[in-house]
Every structure is written in structure tokens, then in C-alpha cells.
Design a protein around this nucleic acid. Sequence first.
DNA 1: AAGCTGGATTTGGATGACGAACCCATGCAA
DNA 2: TTGCATGGGTTCGTCATCCAAATCCAGCTT
Lengths: 157, 157
Amino acid sequence: MQDCGMVPLSRKSPVPPDRCNLARAVDQIGDRWTLLILRSALYGVRRFDDFQTELGTPRTILSGRLKSLVDSGLLAKRTYKVEGRRARPEYVLTTKGEALRPVLIALNQWGDQWLESEGQPPISFTDSQSRQAVRIAFVTEDGREVSVENMRIVLRR
Amino acid sequence: MQDCGMVPLSRKSPVPPDRCNLARAVDQIGDRWTLLILRSALYGVRRFDDFQTELGTPRTILSGRLKSLVDSGLLAKRTYKVEGRRARPEYVLTTKGEALRPVLIALNQWGDQWLESEGQPPISFTDSQSRQAVRIAFVTEDGREVSVENMRIVLRR
DNA sequence: AAGCTGGATTTGGATGACGAACCCATGCAA
DNA sequence: TTGCATGGGTTCGTCATCCAAATCCAGCTT
């Protein structure tokens, strides 16, 4: 098995970037801070200062990123109130935002495998029934795994 | 089913960003141009001008991004030679770079589902055997699908 | 030698990132 | 009722990065 060159040469992509949903997804979330904010949000972080403390994001940037995440419907701005404290906004994942979880877990697992780091990965997932480790994969409609080599591209138009 | 708020509130992530392989992966590839370049590369694009033409990346930026993708071991710089033309460099995905394919396909499918666009998605995947549509999912070691609700987080240390 | 071609650097102006300081509304305690 | 602490921002000036256009450069063809 070679180290590279498995993909056949092509002079251009089958789908031009301006019609490609991957490219358009990258436009929405393909940014360092945005991705880090989503990571925290998927762990349940909701408050401005919690994001700021955890990530060290400059407050100006954080403010802007939260705003555009709300604009693109990934986060919802709501109000929370702790007793004896004034009401404050919080930023909660929408269903659209939640739907990114598999993507970020997949990226996490890529990092576990390919980014050298001492020791075991600090976080992983198991099936609560079988207790087996869980990984990301492609499956058919009925849940049967398909290997990457057996996947065929279908183009429309 | 609500639109948001499914994730329980947390004041900080279980894994701090500096030890998190997801955060470290974001540091390597969490950038608009980098992601777009990888997208093209996964489709087989290899040459400077082909990237440039397809993506419209400023040449200065493209040059820098390719360099750092080579530095981080996602692309390999090789030489190709068309007869009657001088030898030129090309940028080919390494195994590490190839390993990002599931991540980008997952993101593509997220875009198909959540980014409004007219008509059918321009590209999709099927199982070459059963011809069924393929989607991303979590599976156990032996390839049985696990739903998100049945997944349990395991922390180390 | 003149021209083409693909890969890349140089230049200066526009854009965005950043840290520090400040603002502001509220609840609470003196 | 003044004062202060808290959480969630905005304003400001500086500095880094992005970007388009022009230039460079090697080597191949004519």
C-alpha cells in the first residue's frame, strides 16, 4: 500500500464549488473559531463567558461569531435566568446545529488516529448496550456498513 | 420534539481544548481555503493552476496553504511530467489526507440536508453492490449501527 | 531569440483579528 | 442610595492577514 496517489488525477471537480453543498457548508462553518464554538456547544456550553474562558476567543470575535451562528440557524439566542441574578442571553444548539455532531465526531476520530499525541485519546464513545467502541462509518439505508472502496458516486444533471 | 435545547447545560467541556484532538484537528484544517483545497484534492485535483482556477483562491494564499498542508502531512509534493512539457510539482493526498474523506462526505451530507437549495443535491453516494443510498452513521466494531441516544461518552484520566 | 506555460514571490492597499479598556443593566449588600 | 460585583457585550487603536495585480522565473517549443 502506497502512501499517496490513490485518487485518480482530475483537472476539475465533478461539482463546481458554487453548486457544491460541501463548499457551501464550508462557507458557513469553515472557520477556526466557529468550529471551536460549535465543539463547545455540542458539549453543552451556552454562555458567552463560558465560551470565552474555555476557548480564549477575543470577546469581539466571539460576539460576531455567535451572531452569525444565530443568523445561519445553528444556534438560537434565548434567555436564561438564575434566581437572584438578572436574565441573560444564552446560545443553544438548534436541530440544524445538533446535526453537525456526526461531522465533528468524525473529525475528532480523525484527530485521534492521525495527530500524534502521548497516550490514549482523552475521549471516546461506546455503545451503551454492547459496550463496544463506536466509530463513524458509511451505511446503507438498512444500516449495513459500506467500505469506502465500495462507494459509487452518483451525479445529477 | 423541540427545535433546540437537547444538550444539557454545561459550564465547560469535558476535555479542555488544548488536549482535545478535535480542537487540534481544527487547528490543522479548520480554515476556509484549506477545507476547499482538500475538497478538490479528494476529487483528484493536484495541480496549482487547477486548484486556482476551480476555487479562485488568490495565488499567494494558495501557495501558502499548499505549503502548510504539505508540512502537516496531508498532501505530498511530488513531480509530474507531461511529455514535451517541463517537470512540475503536484500535490497529492497522503493516506492521512485521504482519511479525511469520511469527514468531508459527512459535512457534504449535512449541507445536502440543511442548506436550502433548489432541487436534488448534485452529488450523492451509493453502495456499489446493493445500489442503495449511503449515509453516515455510528457503528460498533463489528459494523452494527448505533443511534446517537445509545452512545455513551468515555473519558480517560 | 522569442514566446508560452505553470508555479510561485513581491507589492501595497483593504479587511479582519486582537487586547485592553470601557459601557451598561441589574441584583445585592452596606 | 451609594457602592460594587457580575455577565454580556461594544469601542478603540494596532497589528497581522488577505487579496489582486504585477512581476518573476525556468524550461520547453517554434
